[in-house]
Amino acid sequence: MRIMMSADWFYPSQMGGPSNAIYWQAKAMARAGHQVTVVATSQDIPSTVPTSRWLTLACGRVMYTKNPHFYLPFAHIWYAVVAIRQAEVVHINSLFYPSSVVLVIAARLLRKRIIWAPHGELSPSALIYRSRLKQGLLRLFRVVSKDVIFHSTCAAETVHIRQHFGHNALVQELENMMEMAPARTRKPEPYLLFIGRLHPIKAIDRLLETLSESAIFRNGAYSLTIAGPDTNNYRTYLEELVKTWELTEKVTFVGPVYGDQKEQLLANAYVTILPSHSENFGNVVIESLAQGTPVIASTGTPWQLLETKRAGCWVDNNPSDLCHAIEQFLRLSVDAYASYRQGASELARRFDIHANVAQWERFYEDALG
Score class of each variant (00 low, 15 high):
200 P>E: 07
201 I>V: 14
202 K>C: 09
203 A>Q: 08
207 L>Y: 06
209 E>M: 09
209 E>N: 13
209 E>W: 04
210 T>W: 04
213 E>H: 14
218 R>Q: 15
221 A>K: 11
221 A>I: 08
222 Y>C: 04
222 Y>V: 01
224 L>E: 06
224 L>D: 09
225 T>G: 00
226 I>W: 03
233 N>Y: 05
235 R>K: 14
237 Y>K: 09
237 Y>A: 07
238 L>A: 10
238 L>G: 05
238 L>C: 13
239 E>R: 10
240 E>F: 04
241 L>P: 11
242 V>W: 06
242 V>Q: 04
243 K>S: 12
243 K>E: 13
244 T>D: 12
246 E>N: 13
246 E>R: 13
248 T>K: 11
248 T>N: 11
248 T>P: 01
248 T>V: 13
249 E>L: 01
254 V>K: 01
257 V>C: 07
258 Y>H: 14
259 G>F: 11
260 D>T: 12
261 Q>P: 05
265 L>S: 06
266 L>Y: 03
267 A>R: 01
267 A>G: 04
267 A>M: 00
267 A>Y: 00
271 V>D: 01
274 L>G: 01
276 S>V: 05
276 S>E: 02
278 S>Q: 12
282 G>E: 03
282 G>N: 08
283 N>A: 07
285 V>S: 05
285 V>G: 02
287 E>H: 05
287 E>T: 10
290 A>T: 12
292 G>E: 02
293 T>I: 03
293 T>E: 05
294 P>C: 09
301 T>E: 03
301 T>P: 04
302 P>K: 00
303 W>T: 14
303 W>P: 14
304 Q>F: 13
304 Q>E: 15
305 L>E: 15
305 L>W: 14
306 L>V: 10
309 K>E: 15
311 A>F: 07
312 G>L: 07
313 C>S: 08
314 W>F: 12
316 D>A: 14
318 N>Y: 07
319 P>N: 10
322 L>G: 06
323 C>F: 00
323 C>R: 15
324 H>G: 08
326 I>D: 08
326 I>N: 07
327 E>G: 09
328 Q>D: 12
332 L>W: 14
333 S>P: 12
334 V>S: 15
334 V>Y: 07
338 A>S: 15
340 Y>G: 05
341 R>T: 13
